[in-house]
Protein backbone atom coordinates (compact mmCIF):
# COMPACT_ATOMS: atom_id res chain seq x y z
CA UNK A 1 0.00 0.00 0.00
CA UNK A 2 1.13 3.53 -0.66
CA UNK A 3 1.35 6.00 2.24
CA UNK A 4 1.60 9.78 2.06
CA UNK A 5 1.32 12.58 4.56
CA UNK A 6 -0.69 15.77 4.40
CA UNK A 7 -0.60 18.73 6.76
CA UNK A 8 -3.76 20.16 8.33
CA UNK A 9 -3.68 23.33 6.15
CA UNK A 10 -3.10 21.32 3.03
CA UNK A 11 -6.02 19.12 3.97
CA UNK A 12 -8.31 22.10 3.47
CA UNK A 13 -6.70 22.77 0.11
CA UNK A 14 -7.15 19.14 -0.79
CA UNK A 15 -10.81 19.37 0.21
CA UNK A 16 -11.16 22.34 -2.14
CA UNK A 17 -9.82 20.19 -4.97
CA UNK A 18 -12.22 17.42 -4.03
CA UNK A 19 -15.10 19.88 -4.10
CA UNK A 20 -14.20 20.71 -7.69
CA UNK A 21 -14.23 17.02 -8.63
CA UNK A 22 -17.83 16.30 -7.63
CA UNK A 23 -20.40 16.65 -4.90
CA UNK A 24 -18.45 16.67 -1.65
CA UNK A 25 -20.15 15.45 1.51
CA UNK A 26 -18.50 15.48 4.91
CA UNK A 27 -19.54 15.37 8.54
CA UNK A 28 -20.94 18.59 9.87
CA UNK A 29 -22.54 19.52 13.16
CA UNK A 30 -26.29 19.85 12.67
CA UNK A 31 -27.40 20.34 16.27
CA UNK A 32 -26.04 20.28 19.82
CA UNK A 33 -25.25 16.60 19.80
CA UNK A 34 -25.68 15.35 16.28
CA UNK A 35 -23.68 15.23 13.07
CA UNK A 36 -24.63 14.38 9.53
CA UNK A 37 -22.90 14.05 6.17
CA UNK A 38 -23.74 17.38 4.56
CA UNK A 39 -22.99 18.94 1.20
CA UNK A 40 -19.96 21.11 1.86
CA UNK A 41 -19.90 24.68 0.64
CA UNK A 42 -17.15 25.91 2.96
CA UNK A 43 -14.46 23.29 3.61
CA UNK A 44 -13.80 24.80 7.03
CA UNK A 45 -17.22 23.51 8.11
CA UNK A 46 -15.92 19.94 7.94
CA UNK A 47 -15.91 18.33 11.35
CA UNK A 48 -12.86 16.10 11.79
CA UNK A 49 -13.72 14.95 15.27
CA UNK A 50 -17.22 13.64 15.22
CA UNK A 51 -18.72 10.59 16.86
CA UNK A 52 -21.28 9.35 14.34
CA UNK A 53 -23.62 10.79 11.76
CA UNK A 54 -27.36 10.51 12.25
CA UNK A 55 -27.83 9.23 8.73
CA UNK A 56 -25.60 6.41 7.52
CA UNK A 57 -23.48 6.87 4.35
CA UNK A 58 -25.47 4.19 2.50
CA UNK A 59 -28.09 6.85 1.81
CA UNK A 60 -25.92 8.30 -0.95
CA UNK A 61 -26.07 5.10 -2.95
CA UNK A 62 -29.35 3.53 -1.87
CA UNK A 63 -31.55 6.59 -1.74
CA UNK A 64 -34.14 6.87 1.06
CA UNK A 65 -36.71 7.68 -1.58
CA UNK A 66 -36.10 6.73 -5.17
CA UNK A 67 -38.06 6.83 -8.39
CA UNK A 68 -37.35 3.53 -10.15
CA UNK A 69 -39.62 3.63 -13.18
CA UNK A 70 -42.05 5.81 -15.02
CA UNK A 71 -44.88 3.74 -16.34
CA UNK A 72 -47.59 3.94 -18.92
CA UNK A 73 -50.69 1.96 -18.07
CA UNK A 74 -52.15 1.97 -21.56
CA UNK A 75 -48.95 0.82 -23.26
CA UNK A 76 -48.03 -1.45 -20.32
CA UNK A 77 -44.51 -0.17 -20.27
CA UNK A 78 -42.00 0.50 -17.55
CA UNK A 79 -39.30 3.02 -18.37
CA UNK A 80 -36.34 2.84 -15.98
CA UNK A 81 -35.32 6.18 -14.52
CA UNK A 82 -31.70 6.89 -15.33
CA UNK A 83 -29.61 7.60 -12.27
CA UNK A 84 -27.61 10.80 -12.15
CA UNK A 85 -23.96 10.10 -12.82
CA UNK A 86 -22.24 12.72 -10.70
CA UNK A 87 -19.24 11.92 -8.55
CA UNK A 88 -20.20 11.59 -4.90
CA UNK A 89 -17.23 12.16 -2.63
CA UNK A 90 -17.69 11.13 0.97
CA UNK A 91 -14.98 12.52 3.18
CA UNK A 92 -14.51 11.51 6.78
CA UNK A 93 -16.06 8.04 6.75
CA UNK A 94 -15.20 5.99 9.84
CA UNK A 95 -14.05 2.41 9.44
CA UNK A 96 -17.38 1.01 10.68
CA UNK A 97 -19.22 2.88 7.95
CA UNK A 98 -16.74 1.76 5.32
CA UNK A 99 -17.44 -1.84 6.25
CA UNK A 100 -21.13 -0.91 6.23
CA UNK A 101 -20.78 0.13 2.61
CA UNK A 102 -18.96 -3.08 1.78
CA UNK A 103 -21.88 -5.02 3.24
CA UNK A 104 -24.22 -2.96 1.10
CA UNK A 105 -22.06 -3.84 -1.91
CA UNK A 106 -22.23 -7.52 -1.03
CA UNK A 107 -26.01 -7.36 -1.03
CA UNK A 108 -26.70 -5.03 -3.93
CA UNK A 109 -23.87 -5.97 -6.27
CA UNK A 110 -24.19 -9.74 -6.15
CA UNK A 111 -25.06 -11.74 -9.27
CA UNK A 112 -28.34 -9.80 -9.45
CA UNK A 113 -26.97 -6.27 -9.63
CA UNK A 114 -29.17 -3.42 -8.56
CA UNK A 115 -28.43 -0.95 -11.34
CA UNK A 116 -29.54 2.11 -9.37
CA UNK A 117 -27.13 1.33 -6.57
CA UNK A 118 -24.42 0.25 -8.96
CA UNK A 119 -24.44 3.43 -11.04
CA UNK A 120 -24.09 5.63 -7.99
CA UNK A 121 -21.62 3.40 -6.20
CA UNK A 122 -19.30 3.35 -9.21
CA UNK A 123 -19.25 7.12 -9.07
CA UNK A 124 -18.65 7.15 -5.34
CA UNK A 125 -15.31 8.10 -3.79
CA UNK A 126 -14.83 7.04 -0.19
CA UNK A 127 -12.31 8.80 1.99
CA UNK A 128 -11.91 7.33 5.44
CA UNK A 129 -10.98 9.09 8.64
CA UNK A 130 -9.59 7.69 11.84
CA UNK A 131 -11.59 8.14 15.01
CA UNK A 132 -11.59 7.62 18.74
CA UNK A 133 -14.33 5.43 20.18
CA UNK A 134 -16.91 6.54 22.73
CA UNK A 135 -18.89 4.33 25.07
CA UNK A 136 -21.33 3.41 22.28
CA UNK A 137 -18.67 2.00 19.95
CA UNK A 138 -17.90 -1.71 19.71
CA UNK A 139 -16.38 -2.07 16.26
CA UNK A 140 -13.35 -3.74 17.86
CA UNK A 141 -15.31 -6.79 18.99
CA UNK A 142 -16.67 -6.96 15.47
CA UNK A 143 -13.01 -7.02 14.31
CA UNK A 144 -13.32 -4.06 12.00
CA UNK A 145 -11.82 -1.22 13.99
CA UNK A 146 -8.97 -1.00 11.48
CA UNK A 147 -10.41 -1.30 8.01
CA UNK A 148 -8.24 -2.66 5.19
CA UNK A 149 -10.44 -2.34 2.13
CA UNK A 150 -13.39 -0.39 0.84
CA UNK A 151 -11.84 3.08 0.79
CA UNK A 152 -10.03 5.12 -1.83
CA UNK A 153 -8.06 7.11 0.74
CA UNK A 154 -7.93 6.78 4.50
CA UNK A 155 -6.84 9.68 6.70
CA UNK A 156 -5.13 8.78 9.99
CA UNK A 157 -4.90 11.58 12.45
CA UNK A 158 -1.40 12.80 13.39
CA UNK A 159 -0.51 15.68 15.70
CA UNK A 160 0.36 17.84 12.67
CA UNK A 161 -1.78 16.47 9.89
CA UNK A 162 -2.79 13.11 8.52
CA UNK A 163 -1.10 9.96 7.39
CA UNK A 164 -2.98 8.89 4.30
CA UNK A 165 -3.37 5.31 3.14
CA UNK A 166 -4.05 5.09 -0.58
CA UNK A 167 -6.44 2.22 -1.14
CA UNK A 168 -7.37 2.22 -4.80
CA UNK A 169 -6.38 3.51 -8.22
CA UNK A 170 -8.99 6.21 -7.77
CA UNK A 171 -7.17 7.13 -4.58
CA UNK A 172 -3.86 7.44 -6.45
CA UNK A 173 -5.56 9.61 -9.04
CA UNK A 174 -6.75 11.95 -6.32
CA UNK A 175 -3.29 12.27 -4.78
CA UNK A 176 -1.12 12.35 -7.92
CA UNK A 177 -2.23 15.71 -9.42
CA UNK A 178 -1.33 17.56 -6.19
CA UNK A 179 2.28 16.71 -5.29
CA UNK A 180 2.58 20.09 -3.59
CA UNK A 181 0.04 19.05 -0.93
CA UNK A 182 1.57 15.73 0.04
CA UNK A 183 4.88 14.70 1.53
CA UNK A 184 6.65 11.45 2.34
CA UNK A 185 5.77 9.65 5.55
CA UNK A 186 8.59 9.95 8.09
CA UNK A 187 9.49 7.53 10.87
CA UNK A 188 8.08 10.05 13.33
CA UNK A 189 4.77 10.02 11.51
CA UNK A 190 4.63 6.25 11.70
CA UNK A 191 5.44 6.42 15.40
CA UNK A 192 2.65 8.97 15.87
CA UNK A 193 0.22 6.74 14.05
CA UNK A 194 1.24 3.89 16.32
CA UNK A 195 0.62 6.08 19.36
CA UNK A 196 -2.76 7.09 18.02
CA UNK A 197 -3.73 3.48 17.43
CA UNK A 198 -2.53 2.59 20.91
CA UNK A 199 -4.59 5.35 22.44
CA UNK A 200 -7.53 4.31 20.36
CA UNK A 201 -7.43 0.67 21.39
CA UNK A 202 -7.17 1.66 25.02
CA UNK A 203 -10.36 3.67 24.78
CA UNK A 204 -12.79 0.90 23.90
CA UNK A 205 -15.12 -0.05 26.72
CA UNK A 206 -14.97 -3.76 25.94
CA UNK A 207 -12.39 -6.09 24.50
CA UNK A 208 -12.14 -9.50 22.94
CA UNK A 209 -14.34 -10.63 20.09
CA UNK A 210 -17.93 -11.56 19.67
CA UNK A 211 -17.47 -14.41 17.21
CA UNK A 212 -19.57 -16.84 19.21
CA UNK A 213 -22.33 -14.31 19.83
CA UNK A 214 -24.65 -15.65 17.17
CA UNK A 215 -24.62 -19.12 18.68
CA UNK A 216 -25.58 -17.80 22.10
CA UNK A 217 -28.35 -15.80 20.47
CA UNK A 218 -29.81 -19.03 19.13
CA UNK A 219 -29.23 -21.05 22.27
CA UNK A 220 -30.98 -18.39 24.35
CA UNK A 221 -33.84 -17.46 22.06
CA UNK A 222 -36.28 -17.33 24.96
CA UNK A 223 -34.06 -15.02 26.98
CA UNK A 224 -36.13 -12.65 29.17
CA UNK A 225 -34.24 -9.69 27.70
CA UNK A 226 -36.49 -9.76 24.64
CA UNK A 227 -39.66 -9.37 26.69
CA UNK A 228 -38.22 -6.74 28.95
CA UNK A 229 -36.69 -4.55 26.26
CA UNK A 230 -39.37 -4.92 23.59
CA UNK A 231 -41.80 -3.63 26.18
CA UNK A 232 -39.85 -0.35 26.27
CA UNK A 233 -39.38 -0.26 22.48
CA UNK A 234 -41.32 2.43 20.63
CA UNK A 235 -41.30 0.52 17.34
CA UNK A 236 -40.25 3.77 15.68
CA UNK A 237 -37.61 2.29 13.41
CA UNK A 238 -34.85 4.73 14.36
CA UNK A 239 -32.43 1.85 14.95
CA UNK A 240 -32.86 0.45 11.47
CA UNK A 241 -33.04 3.74 9.60
CA UNK A 242 -29.82 5.01 11.12
CA UNK A 243 -28.09 1.63 10.70
CA UNK A 244 -25.30 1.62 8.10
CA UNK A 245 -26.19 -1.89 6.92
CA UNK A 246 -30.00 -2.06 7.11
CA UNK A 247 -31.26 -2.02 3.58
CA UNK A 248 -34.90 -3.12 3.56
CA UNK A 249 -37.04 -1.17 1.20
CA UNK A 250 -40.62 -1.15 0.03
CA UNK A 251 -42.00 -0.41 -3.42
CA UNK A 252 -45.18 1.32 -4.42
CA UNK A 253 -46.87 2.50 -7.57
CA UNK A 254 -47.99 6.10 -7.67
CA UNK A 255 -50.50 6.53 -10.48
CA UNK A 256 -50.89 9.98 -11.96
CA UNK A 257 -54.20 11.78 -12.01
CA UNK A 258 -54.55 11.23 -15.79
CA UNK A 259 -55.11 7.47 -15.36
CA UNK A 260 -52.33 6.71 -17.84
CA UNK A 261 -48.94 7.51 -16.35
CA UNK A 262 -47.36 6.98 -13.00
CA UNK A 263 -44.22 6.22 -11.10
CA UNK A 264 -42.91 3.14 -9.37
CA UNK A 265 -40.96 4.33 -6.34
CA UNK A 266 -39.07 2.62 -3.57
CA UNK A 267 -38.34 3.91 -0.12
CA UNK A 268 -36.58 2.65 2.99
CA UNK A 269 -38.58 0.28 5.10
CA UNK A 270 -37.92 -1.17 8.52
CA UNK A 271 -38.48 -4.60 10.02
CA UNK A 272 -39.70 -2.75 13.12
CA UNK A 273 -42.90 -1.78 11.29
CA UNK A 274 -45.96 -3.97 11.30
CA UNK A 275 -46.36 -4.16 7.52
CA UNK A 276 -42.85 -5.54 7.01
CA UNK A 277 -43.86 -9.13 7.71
CA UNK A 278 -47.37 -8.87 6.34
CA UNK A 279 -48.49 -11.16 3.53
CA UNK A 280 -51.74 -11.49 1.63
CA UNK A 281 -54.78 -12.33 3.69
CA UNK A 282 -53.51 -10.27 6.64
CA UNK A 283 -51.23 -12.98 7.95
CA UNK A 284 -48.17 -11.48 9.63
CA UNK A 285 -44.89 -13.34 10.09
CA UNK A 286 -43.76 -10.83 12.69
CA UNK A 287 -47.08 -10.05 14.29
CA UNK A 288 -45.98 -8.68 17.66
CA UNK A 289 -43.60 -5.94 18.67
CA UNK A 290 -41.46 -8.59 20.33
CA UNK A 291 -41.25 -10.61 17.09
CA UNK A 292 -40.01 -7.54 15.27
CA UNK A 293 -37.60 -6.62 18.04
CA UNK A 294 -36.24 -10.16 18.07
CA UNK A 295 -35.85 -10.12 14.30
CA UNK A 296 -33.39 -7.25 14.36
CA UNK A 297 -31.17 -8.89 16.96
CA UNK A 298 -30.78 -11.92 14.77
CA UNK A 299 -30.58 -10.18 11.42
CA UNK A 300 -27.84 -7.82 12.61
CA UNK A 301 -25.78 -10.62 14.12
CA UNK A 302 -25.93 -12.93 11.11
CA UNK A 303 -22.68 -13.57 9.26
CA UNK A 304 -21.86 -11.76 6.05
CA UNK A 305 -19.37 -14.01 4.24
CA UNK A 306 -18.26 -11.33 1.76
CA UNK A 307 -16.90 -9.12 4.53
CA UNK A 308 -16.28 -11.87 7.09
CA UNK A 309 -18.13 -9.82 9.68
CA UNK A 310 -21.56 -9.76 11.17
CA UNK A 311 -24.06 -7.41 9.58
CA UNK A 312 -23.64 -5.24 12.67
CA UNK A 313 -20.49 -3.14 12.43
CA UNK A 314 -20.59 -1.81 16.00
CA UNK A 315 -21.09 1.85 15.11
CA UNK A 316 -23.42 2.40 18.08
CA UNK A 317 -26.05 4.33 16.12
CA UNK A 318 -28.99 2.14 17.11
CA UNK A 319 -28.28 2.85 20.75
CA UNK A 320 -27.25 6.49 20.38
CA UNK A 321 -30.32 7.35 18.32
CA UNK A 322 -32.87 5.29 20.26
CA UNK A 323 -35.42 7.61 21.88
CA UNK A 324 -36.29 4.85 24.36
CA UNK A 325 -32.60 4.44 25.26
CA UNK A 326 -32.49 0.74 24.52
CA UNK A 327 -28.88 -0.36 24.63
CA UNK A 328 -28.15 -2.85 21.86
CA UNK A 329 -24.61 -3.52 23.02
CA UNK A 330 -25.64 -4.14 26.61
CA UNK A 331 -28.51 -6.41 25.58
CA UNK A 332 -26.27 -8.52 23.37
CA UNK A 333 -23.70 -8.79 26.14
CA UNK A 334 -26.43 -9.84 28.52
CA UNK A 335 -27.50 -12.67 26.24
CA UNK A 336 -24.01 -13.93 25.50
CA UNK A 337 -22.81 -13.42 29.06
CA UNK A 338 -19.95 -11.16 27.98
CA UNK A 339 -18.32 -9.07 30.66
CA UNK A 340 -17.15 -5.51 30.34
CA UNK A 341 -18.23 -1.93 30.69
CA UNK A 342 -21.52 -1.14 29.01
Amino acid sequence: MRYVKISKENTYKFLEHLKATGALYAPQKISDRFYDFCAISDVHDVEFEYDRTIRPPRRFFHLPDEKMFNFDMTRHELTPVKTQAEHIILFGVHSCDIVGLRIMDAEFLDEQKDSYYETRRKKGIIIGLSCLPDEYCFCNVRRIEFVDAGFDLFFHELPDGFLVRVGTVTGHKLVDPHPELFEEVSADDTKNMELFEEKRSSMFSIYGNWDNLRYFLELRMDHPMYDRESEICLGCGNCTLTCPTCRCYDVKDLPAINQVNGERVRFWDSCQFRSHGLVAGDHNFRATKKDRFFNRYHCKNAYCPETTTSYCVGCGRCTYFCPAEINFKRNLMEIAGYRGAV
Binding site: E107, Q112, Y249, D269, C271
Partner: peptide
Protein backbone atom coordinates in the same frame (compact mmCIF):
# COMPACT_ATOMS: atom_id res chain seq x y z
CA UNK B 1 -43.58 -11.42 1.36
CA UNK B 2 -41.12 -11.55 -1.52
CA UNK B 3 -41.34 -7.99 -2.71
CA UNK B 4 -38.28 -7.81 -4.96
CA UNK B 5 -37.59 -11.51 -5.60
CA UNK B 6 -33.84 -11.00 -5.84
CA UNK B 7 -32.65 -10.76 -2.23
CA UNK B 8 -32.57 -7.01 -1.91
CA UNK B 9 -35.66 -5.63 -0.25
CA UNK B 10 -35.39 -7.79 2.87
CA UNK B 11 -39.09 -8.51 3.35
CA UNK B 12 -38.75 -12.27 3.03
CA UNK B 13 -35.87 -12.69 5.43
CA UNK B 14 -36.16 -15.77 7.57
CA UNK B 15 -34.07 -17.49 10.14
CA UNK B 16 -31.93 -16.77 13.14
CA UNK B 17 -28.40 -15.52 13.62
CA UNK B 18 -26.48 -18.51 12.25
CA UNK B 19 -28.75 -19.25 9.33
CA UNK B 20 -29.99 -15.99 7.95
Amino acid sequence: RMKCGVGKCGHCNIGTATSW
